[in-house]
Design a protein around this nucleic acid. Structure first.
Lengths: 217, 217, 217, 217
DNA sequence: TATGAATGAGTGTTCATTCAT
DNA sequence: TATGAATGAACACTCATTCAT
């Protein structure tokens, strides 16, 4: 929902703007993110932002949508086959890869799940949260049908646990390994050594392995 | 680190103040919490807050510390015996009990883990996060020693996964079961039926069972 | 004082522009009228307005002048004969007719008498106000000469009273009869039934009758 | 609806504030009146205004209400006896007196009848407008009952004409006599000579005389 | 010890106008 | 001649904090 002006913007100008906005909203939650700070950093007029977007909410929503588009592109090749665990592992290795790339976009993805005082963002949040939950629930249900998940597990409940491991848990382990935390990494991402990259892939595998054993018949 | 004036306060005045502050910081994150709202609700002078505490940060830190004290008291009887899983289950049933009691204190506990723009709260956050992680890590290490956790698990890593299941995951499942969410529950807690209480205990058991199987040798 | 470009504009483009500007300035006082709204509605570039007119003031002044030209044309046939009251009645029936036609032009006529923060419009306003006053004063003076207005009336003073009845008063009665008000009528003019038209002509007659009796010898 | 803070204000501070606000809202319509200008002129902090009033609307409404109170006090002695014309004359001499006093308060009275884009002021406006109309209509109806107004006059219609003469008309004549206009007088009121005062009283009499003759049987 | 008025930097947003293309 | 992105001063409003009483 950006204005046409935004699409017509000269590519480098547009890129600079997106970069600044991305940075701001990655570093601060919606309420604390400051339009003034964005323009100050860019050295452009405050009014310009409102040529591109209706308001702060509109700008934030665009960032979230853009993140969705970027992730969809990356995840294009996600396999619909294999065991539940293979598919989960593939999905979350992709997630880890996202954090290795520009972690600010990954941070935006999480922002969309954060509660806000702004009512116009509530629907978005609930929608995103529901999407994650039902994706995992369906996966578990399929796992039961295929005999990879034991029957006395309630898929609706276990989905929350799986999300806990793979979102909070995996990220937390990830940043501990990189000796920083979410905020620190977003603020000052650094190149990843091959050694670290291997370790991270290993982390995702460990998480999935825990879930596999935990839910297996 | 409240000022001496706070300690000397008449007990009922002090209690009323704590209640109002607790409510405010449970309902809103640090940045959105409003000193004005607290005093408005209490009908006291704004200046009073600054007689008791240095500033908003100081007040928040006291609440977090007070929560620690209260939890320590509740958890005093936590068994240092039994298998790792029995001890985990006991710990998290206690956690669930905390949410059934005054969920506002429980919310404060989580607040201390939320990132903020306020630099003076960063250290606190990191410290709390580290405490949780090392408690779980120690538990897992002990589990390995006692043969309840398999040896190819890295306790430092698995601790994050366990935290993911038991914090994000368990709470998420909890509130889904109560048909609300974290914010809703803090804003308007209601009595829990015996039926629900049983269901909640069951949730904690399911979470621990998942971890037990997931980490068992 | 539009720029030459405005005159050279293709007739239909020009007409569309005038219509949009007319609408905007009829619905909103000068300060609230929005150039942005005009161009948005027309789908033309903002810069275009400044190709046609120096600025917002210039545009407004042209509308007022254009209104004067249109009214002069309509009033061309105004009788210079008959008693003062016949001439007044004719003038104000013409006025009522103007409101029945495109009330937006009529509204522009009134706008020119409204005070503004814009200093460059002050002279215009005073000039128009003076024109109305002196027209009525001359009429009353002639009435005295012809014995239709009593001699102890001060024409310079009574002119203001007459204007009060025929502008504020008559319009006010008019819109009360149509069960709306000035703003409502401009925003959504509707066709007038023959019955209403008769009632309105009657209103003008009542107003003039009041003045006739009030000023007669 | 000012906050208690406003009532508790030191009298001279309060008076200075009222004076500045009065000036701003007398000189500018609601939309153009500027809170920033008020505080700049007073040399106080912007926040102070919001210690006294909820917002700009609240401040404006207080001024209107205060004007009502001041007028009510002045008009305390308004005769409920005498002919319709005597009562009208008394009412409007009082009105003229108001303009001779601090014309800014009188201007505020008129402001309450001006249309605004602010929806919360619409109800106020309609209410005030209706009060004036029904006061005059009742007066005319009584006049018919007592034989001072002829029966073929429609009181609901004539009320608008009377208001036109006594509001727009009388004020217009008044300021013409003082060789200025409404805005000018509010901006720079000056002392009135005894000679002028007499002339003004005479104006009100002339207006009423016109109406008396115009409406008499 | 309590008060609460004053502060002022901060917020998001609007809009007439300009000017390079 | 038309375009429309850029501008920047202006707006109303918020809120933690201070300090004289």
């Amino acid at each position: 929902m950006p204005r046409p002006t935004f699409d017509r913007l000269a590519p480098d100008k547009r890129a600079r703007f997106v970069d600044a906005a991305l940075d701001e909203f990655a570093r601060h939650r919606f309420a604390e993110a400051s339009v003034s700070r964005i323009v100050a950093r860019l050295g452009i007029a405050k009014g310009s932002v409102y040529q591109y977007f209706d308001d702060k909410v509109d700008l934030f929503r665009w960032l979230v949508a853009e993140h969705g588009r970027r992730r969809a592109e990356l995840a294009g090749a996600m396999p619909a086959e294999g065991t539940v665990w293979e598919r989960l592992a593939a999905a979350y290795r992709a997630g880890v890869a996202e954090w290795q790339g520009d972690p600010r976009w990954a941070r935006i993805g999480l922002r969309s799940l954060e509660p806000t005082d702004e009512p116009r963002l509530e629907a978005l949040r609930r929608e995103h949260q529901a999407a994650v939950a039902s994706f995992l629930e369906a996966l578990l249900r399929q796992g039961q049908a295929e005999g990879q998940v034991r029957d006395d597990v309630d898929p609706a409940v276990a989905a929350h646990f799986v999300q806990g491991v793979l979102t909070t848990g995996l990220l937390s382990a990830l940043f501990a390994r990189l000796d920083t935390d979410l905020e620190g990494w977003v603020a000052a991402p650094r190149a990843i050594t091959e050694r670290e990259a291997a370790a991270l892939r290993d982390l995702a595998d460990q998480a999935v392995e825990l879930l596999r054993r935990g839910l297996a018949p």
